[in-house]
């Protein structure tokens, strides 16, 4: 199966590991991602001011360009997924948004594209049972904290991804890989996000709480689908500001998937992590 794919800017730079592991793991499962020929930044922030449409134009154009391919558009970064899904929701349900945004688009677009996250593909297209059969026993017994953060699940009505307070799709995914998901109370807490540039204390204190909660529940690694969550939680520990010992490797869920499928580790982008997960995963 071939599906159009929107990587997002950060997946070309700091989050190459997320891009490479997503492509490799899905390819191993028979899903080929075809990158859109031309794309821009999605905007990263869904505009929350009702009278501001300009911040939606980039995402609208991306959705529009994908509409020519077929129904679905795969994107894995939590920010991109959040923005594409909410802008699409606005175009579908808000006549003013649809009219104003179409003034900036080359074709007419009415919300036909369906943004999908690889976790949804794994659950509904591949199937967790089939995934269980494919995953080797390599990571058996590894205790994994599934960290959703904020943008993947909220707001529930527009994201329609999973329960906003107690999502379970990532735990189901982890269990299918043969690892042991640990439940911890901070899985939908925010890491402080873009405040890393403005109020670093928020990221430092929140990050320590999230990591400490995961470790207290026995986690050996933490998985996420967000490049900014990954960075904030990983960098904090890289700077020696984490309080969890040993340091908790912060992985993309697709890196865990690639490892469970025994794909070559060189293609999964582990080298850019501050806390090197390789001794634990591959040791």
């Amino acid at each position: 199966m071939k599906l159009p794919y929107f990587p997002g800017c950060t997946l070309y730079t700091r989050a190459r590991g997320l891009d490479h592991s997503t492509r490799a793991a899905l390819a191993a499962l028979g899903i080929e991602l075809e990158e859109l020929p031309n794309w821009t930044c999605c905007g990263t922030a869904f505009p929350l001011a009702q009278d501001s449409y300009i911040g939606m134009v980039a995402a609208a154009r991306i959705l529009d360009s994908a509409a020519q391919h077929n129904g679905r558009l795969v994107t894995v970064c939590s920010f991109c997924y959040h923005v594409l899904k909410r802008v699409n929701h606005s175009i579908k349900n808000n006549a003013e948004a649809r009219r104003k945004l179409n003034d900036y688009l080359e074709q007419g677009y009415g919300g036909e594209t369906v943004p999908v996250h690889p976790l949804e593909i794994l659950k509904h297209d591949v199937g967790f049972e089939a995934l269980r059969a494919r995953a080797r026993g390599r990571l058996k017994g590894l205790k994994v904290a599934c960290y959703y953060g904020c943008l993947l699940v909220r707001p529930a009505a527009e994201m329609a991804f999973d329960d906003p307070e107690n999502p379970t799709i990532m735990e189901e995914f982890a269990a299918a890989l043969g690892v042991e998901p640990v439940h911890f109370p901070y899985k939908t807490a925010c890491c402080g996000s873009y405040q890393v540039l403005n109020a670093y204390d928020v990221v430092a204190s929140r990050g320590r709480e999230i990591l400490a909660a995961a470790a207290a529940h026995g986690a050996q690694v933490l998985i996420t689908s967000c490049p900014l969550c990954q960075f904030n939680l990983d960098w904090l520990q890289g700077r020696g500001e984490g309080t969890v010992l040993p340091a908790l490797p912060v992985l993309y869920f697709t890196q865990l998937l690639g490892t469970a499928l025994e794909l070559p580790a060189e293609g999964l982008g582990f080298e850019s992590h501050y806390v090197d997960p390789r001794p634990l995963l591959l040791g």
């Binding site: 800017c9 950060t10 989050a15 990263t44 922030a45 920010f79 960075f231």
Partner: peptide, 18 residues
């Protein structure tokens, strides 16, 4: 040093918000 360390999505998002 901070600008070039963080993922660019953080910069883009922070500018949009702040």
């Amino acid at each position: 040093a901070l600008l070039t360390e963080v993922p660019q999505m953080a910069v883009t998002c922070a500018f949009r918000k702040l």
